[in-house]
Amino acid sequence: MNLQEEILSNIDGRTLNYCFSCGMCTGGCPSARVTDSIYNPRKILHRAALEGRLEEDIWLCTNCYTCQERCPTKTKVADLISLMRRIYVKEKGIPGFIKPLIENLGACGFTARIGDLENKRRERMGLPSVKQNQEVRRIIEKTGGGL
């Protein structure tokens, strides 16, 4: 696999070359904040552009889009990270530490499991209860969600 070629063949991916490494993305990143900058979107982009290497840190993005909102060069930072995740899954499959989330997703349609306790709390707040959702499970199975 050639990471650069894959990224540049995608319309959002093409914005990778816009980046001039100013660090504004990492500067405001909540994930970088709690991981002591182990997760560093600027570095991830730079690494992809120069080395063409994918590492597991891309899974630490919370998709809050702060980086993309603030980027002065209009690089689609968060979209690029999502794109790299897709390429990662295509190449190496879903990494082990993501699997529990997928299980939850298959069970209820959310990454965090919603059981009786949560439903009771929802009831108190006047929200409809969440039922077991088989559709999402079927989608995951059909698309080879790695379960």
Binding site: C22, G23, T26, G27, G28, S37, N40
Partner: peptide
């Protein structure tokens, strides 16, 4: 709040 690029840290 900024990243110090040379240290690679927020």
């Amino acid at each position: 709040r900024a990243e110090d690029i040379l240290l690679g840290k927020q």
